[in-house]
């Protein structure tokens, strides 16, 4: 029975996630409280946005419902990535306390074990809060829906999640070299999420170029959301790029895989 590493990894991931969910259920009250807390904490930045719109009708030329669309898509993507891959950011700690070694002697890919490690269902708090905002945004927007746009929305959320997930894996690869550097990847994931919640029009052009061509966060939601809202992007990029999210996501995952491999190889040659 020879399975491909991908199948093995996925199977192990599901198994380990199942174990963590059952572990969590040993403390039900605590679980319920942390889901609620997660929901509220992630909701606070939306409250901040609402306070901004208390003082103005438009921000960067965008109305509140349009910003809510940006907020909902970015946050849902980040929430999904955090739910499924977020634990990879604990890698540095595992390297420091030596428990990574126990994962390396098992016959399943290490990344699957690291991603499933301490799987926290409470992170559903962010996902549900984001979806709530998204639903509200969609119900208050007047979009000229077409089948393409209707399909673009879920595809955007999923490929956005893949891009964020890739950043998390690449960050974990970096933590093999610098175990205390978990915050660096937070800049790209949580920082990126904060940025993508606002319209691209308010940021400096160079910053927008940076998150389009260097760290391709713009594909998480900006470009496709602008298409849904029938708006021009501030860089005047060709229109087909609005649909490039899935391709960019695949590319990011590929590069993240390389970064992870390089990190793991360096760990196995240095032992840190």
């Amino acid at each position: 029975m020879v399975e491909s590493p991908v199948v093995q990894g996925l199977r192990a991931y599901v198994l380990i996630v199942g174990m963590w969910i059952r572990s969590t259920m040993a403390y039900r009250t605590s679980f319920a409280l942390t889901v609620l807390g997660n929901f509220l904490v992630t909701g606070l930045d939306f409250v901040a946005i609402m306070i901004m719109f208390w003082h103005t009708d438009v921000l960067g030329g965008f109305a509140v419902a349009e910003v809510a669309l940006l907020y909902g898509t970015a946050s849902a993507s980040l929430g999904l990535a955090d739910l499924t891959m977020g634990s990879a950011s604990r890698l540095g700690r595992r390297v420091r306390d030596g428990t990574l070694d126990t994962l390396l002697v098992r016959p399943v890919p290490v990344i699957a074990q690291v991603a499933a490690d301490r799987f926290a269902l409470r992170r559903l708090g962010r996902v549900s809060q984001a979806l709530l905002v998204l639903v509200w945004a969609l119900s208050s927007l007047e979009v000229a829906w077409t089948p393409v746009k209707a399909l673009l929305l879920p595809v955007t959320v999923l490929s956005g999640a893949a891009i964020f997930g890739a950043l998390m894996v690449a960050g974990a690869g970096f933590q093999f070299l610098a175990q205390d550097a978990a915050e660096v990847q937070n800049s790209f994931t949580y920082g990126g999420n904060t940025m993508l919640q606002y319209p691209p029009t308010i940021f400096a052009k160079d910053l927008v170029r940076g998150v389009t061509f260097i760290v391709p966060l713009a594909f998480v939601n900006w470009l496709p959301a602008l298409r849904i809202l029938d708006r021009q992007d501030p860089l005047g990029l060709p229109g087909w790029l609005d649909f490039a999210g899935p391709v960019v996501a695949v590319g990011c995952c590929f590069l993240a895989g390389l970064a992870w491999r390089a990190g793991l190889r360096s760990y196995r040659s240095t032992g840190s």
């Binding site: 901004m52 003082h55 103005t56 921000l59 960067g60 800049s187 790209f188 920082g191 904060t194 940025m195 606002y198 308010i202 940021f203 400096a204 910053l207």
Partner: peptide, 14 residues
Amino acid sequence: TVFGFILAYTFIAL
């Protein structure tokens, strides 16, 4: 620093 930049632009907009 990254967050500083991001928030700075949102404040400028407001």
